[in-house]
Amino acid sequence: MNDDSSRREPIPRSSLTGLVGRGLGGVPPTALVLLGIVSVQLGSALAKQLFGEVGSFGTVALRLFFAAAILMLLWRPSPRMSRRAWTVVVAYGLTLGLMNLCFYLSLDRLPLGIAVTVEFLGPLAVALGGSRRWLDALWAVLAGGGVVLLMGGGGEVNLVGLLFALGAAACWGLYIVVSAALGRHTTEGNGLALGMVVAALVAVPIGVADSGAALIQPWVLVAGLGLALLSSVVPYSLDLEALRRMPPRVFGILMSLEPAMASLIGLVVLHEVLHWSQWIAVLCVVIASVGATRGARPDVRPEDLAPAQHPDRPN
């Protein structure tokens, strides 16, 4: 797939994405991408507020349960698929569930900006993997230097949280590969919806065992619904509409801003102050991501771009 948006095949619409397209037709696609980024990071900020009540396991359970319910209502997928397709759907759901668990466990121990920055190493590694260009090696070194700054800078970083963030990064890299297979073996949003159900089946029992009756408090359920909307449904719809109107590479470059936006929202909403060395680390990863995306081959697929998000965002 190349950068000529006129040659990109149309992305299927659900009733929601069709409504978004009609309602936001006059909004520039760049603004749609930025709104999606803000929505995701506000969702992560909301998740941190829930940790004190239901813990990280309970928060993941709420997000995936409501996201699965909403997507099943939107797409109403048929379970009649080949065995190969179901294998991919299950792999997608297991990867998605584990990725969210790792990310929220890291978010419980790290500032939002740091957790997102470390997690971004996963898609960046996928984008750089197999490249023989010396410039891509520079981006890899720059991103690695950012991690070193996070670990050895003036700000304290929880080691367990960092390991969970690295686990989320590894899952995100695998998620990109599985997402590509999901697109080949399923149609429209059917695989996404069914995969989300699999992810919920992984996370909900763990969340219920850990949080119990706290999960069914009315305000917690409302917050969980808001979390699913902010972190999954709203950005998914905005991203799809933006991708209809801009080349995938431009979309990828804009998505490279996500670690910086996460750090800003962590500062403004959660009052998480990063050390100056940690801000430099975030900047290193952002620059590496932009560089890797700009240097991608013209025929690279959107799912291979370093910062490209997919139907469900991991953070």
Rank of each mutant, 00 (worst) to 15 (best):
D3N: 01
D4H: 00
S6Y: 05
R7K: 07
E9Y: 06
S14A: 07
L19N: 07
L19M: 09
V20M: 09
G23V: 13
G23A: 14
G26A: 10
V27K: 11
L35Q: 09
Q41S: 11
G43M: 02
K48M: 08
K48H: 06
F51K: 04
F51T: 00
T59Q: 04
R63D: 02
A67T: 01
A68V: 00
L71N: 02
L71C: 03
M72W: 13
M72D: 02
R76K: 06
P79C: 04
R80S: 10
R80G: 10
A85K: 04
W86F: 00
Y92N: 03
T95G: 05
L98A: 11
M99Y: 01
N100A: 11
D108M: 05
R109K: 09
L110N: 05
P111D: 07
A115E: 08
G122T: 02
A127G: 09
L128C: 07
L128H: 04
G129E: 14
G146Q: 03
G146I: 11
G154T: 13
N158E: 14
N158K: 11
L159F: 10
L163F: 12
L163W: 11
A168D: 13
A169Q: 11
A169D: 11
C171L: 08
W172G: 15
L174Y: 14
I176E: 14
I176Q: 15
I176S: 15
I176V: 13
V177Y: 12
L182W: 14
G189Q: 15
N190M: 09
G191V: 01
G191C: 00
L194E: 05
M196E: 05
V202K: 14
V202Y: 12
A203V: 03
A209I: 01
S211V: 02
A214R: 12
W219L: 10
W219N: 15
V222N: 09
L227T: 08
S231M: 08
P235W: 09
S237E: 05
L243P: 06
M246R: 10
V250L: 13
F251P: 07
E258V: 06
A262H: 00
S263W: 01
L267F: 10
V268T: 07
V269Y: 12
H271N: 14
L274C: 08
A281S: 03
A281E: 02
V285E: 00
V286K: 00
I287N: 00
A292Q: 02
A296L: 10
P302D: 04
A306P: 06
A308D: 05
H310W: 06
P311C: 12
